[in-house]
């Protein structure tokens, strides 16, 4: 349900950068989401069509890039990816782990169209 608030926030960021770049239209928004972020792509996509109606982002494609969660064992130094459930270190069973990636959640870039006249 918090995907609605998140989708509105994505729109605000995209609109601000589109304005600064003199965009006539935003064609795509590239998002980076770590595996540990509890965001559901489908929900964001669902809200997007409603939220972006009447904006410069209408019809823009949302591209989700999912980053894997990477953990580092503080005891034996093993680095491993988390695919399913949270686990102890696969090598030494330690619980002293550091999450080094997987919590990312940002707009990486937007793709825009500009009119020739305005850019000249």
């Amino acid at each position: 349900m918090h995907e609605l608030a998140i989708t509105e926030s994505i729109l605000n960021i995209a609109e601000t950068h589109a304005r600064q770049s003199g965009a006539a239209r935003v064609t795509a928004i590239n998002l980076v989401i770590g595996r540990l972020s509890s965001v559901v792509d489908d929900s964001v996509q669902f809200y997007w069509d409603f939220v972006s109606e009447n904006s410069v982002c209408k019809g823009a494609r949302l591209n989700f890039s999912r980053l894997p969660a990477r953990l580092l064992c503080q005891d034996c130094g093993t680095e491993f990816s988390l695919d399913g459930q949270l686990t102890v270190c696969p090598k030494c069973q330690s619980v002293h782990l550091k999450i080094i990636s997987g919590e990312e959640f940002y707009v990486d870039s937007i793709e825009i169209e500009t009119l020739e006249e305005t850019s000249a």
Binding site: I10, N12, I13, S109, I112
Partner: peptide
């Protein structure tokens, strides 16, 4: 029309934060 990719790299929770 010209097409362009604009780098943003902005945290989505920024406004709330």
């Amino acid at each position: 029309m010209t097409y362009q990719r604009v780098p943003v790299v902005e945290n989505i929770m920024n406004a709330n934060d």
